[in-house]
């Protein structure tokens, strides 16, 4: 009797969960499907899920008519560049705070976090003017600098929470064996900390890839990443749903795949360790 009831409730909850998650996922699925339709099919009053002529025309149109590939490279350079530079700056800081804490460490961490909460409009004008004066407007270098700085607090914080869980005894044992500090970092700490460092890198690539305030304001034709490229579809000419879909799919798929791998780290990183 009771197994029967629990079986029935499992069927019910499964159906409900699939229905709701299907609805949440539907806009992405619909974009994916539309990207393979003709423009006429894409606005058809009797839209079809699968029964239409599948075509790759939109993808070749987007690639042919716009420097899509340049924008893609810009996104890669900005997201990866800022994450790697950020790691190089953040790892020593997080190491220092996790293993040689002082009375001020906690305040320092909180202060770093507070910089993340500064609304971008609070520094919009000075950054814009400084970028103009240093000829950094619409350059990849400029965007790498900004992305590194806005994500640095998250990086230090995430790495700190990972490093803090590494037992001190391991480092002390290495020290007893006469390891120097550099040996300690490269041969003992880094191998243990590698998963944490990888997750930090992953989360920051995702955040930088999708960042859409500074990238829209500080970039134009040359350095525009995909966020800004897609924004150019907001003033369309003629039929464009299928092409918008194709461009969108190409912009989101890499990060969607990375994102699914980093679900757990996402919670930890974005809640600053408040929820683990």
């Amino acid at each position: 009797m009771s197994t029967n009831a629990s079986f029935r409730s499992k069927v019910f909850y499964t159906a409900l969960a699939w229905l709701i998650s299907g609805l949440i996922f539907f806009p992405i699925l619909w974009t994916f499907i539309t990207s393979f339709k003709t423009e006429a099919e894409a606005i058809s009053a009797t839209p079809s899920l699968f029964m239409f002529e599948w075509t790759l025309q939109n993808y070749s149109d987007v690639l042919a008519r716009s420097p899509y590939f340049d924008h893609f490279i810009n996104s890669v350079v900005i997201a990866l560049g800022s994450s790697v530079v950020g790691l190089l700056i953040a790892i020593p800081a997080a190491w220092s705070m996790a293993f040689v804490p002082t009375k001020r460490t906690k305040n320092l961490l909180m202060w770093m976090l507070s910089t993340k909460m500064l609304p971008p409009v609070g520094v919009l004008i000075p950054i814009y003017l400084l970028f103009r004066d240093f000829s950094l407007l619409d350059t990849k270098l400029g965007l790498v600098i900004v992305m590194t700085l806005i994500n640095l607090p998250i990086m230090v914080w995430m790495l700190y929470t990972y490093f803090r869980e590494i037992p001190h005894e391991i480092l002390e044992a290495a020290r007893m064996d006469g390891a120097s500090i550099t040996e300690e970092i490269f041969h003992v700490l880094l191998p243990i900390a590698l998963p944490g460092i990888a997750s930090t890198l992953l989360l920051n690539v995702i955040l930088a890839w999708n960042e859409a305030f500074w990238t829209l304001i500080l970039s134009a034709a040359n350095a525009a990443p995909l966020t800004a490229f897609i924004a150019s579809y907001s003033s369309p000419e003629g039929l464009f749903y299928a092409k918008l879909s194709a461009a969108s799919v190409m912009a989101i798929v890499p990060i969607l795949i990375l994102g699914w791998f980093s679900q757990k780290q996402l919670v930890r990183g974005l809640s600053f360790g408040a929820v683990k």
């Binding site: 996922f25 992405i28 897609i230 912009a251 699914w260």
Partner: peptide, 12 residues
């Protein structure tokens, strides 16, 4: 499926 929208860039 539930998580996917979070990874879609705001402009898209």
């Amino acid at each position: 499926m539930v998580l996917a929208p979070f990874f879609v860039m705001p402009t898209v």
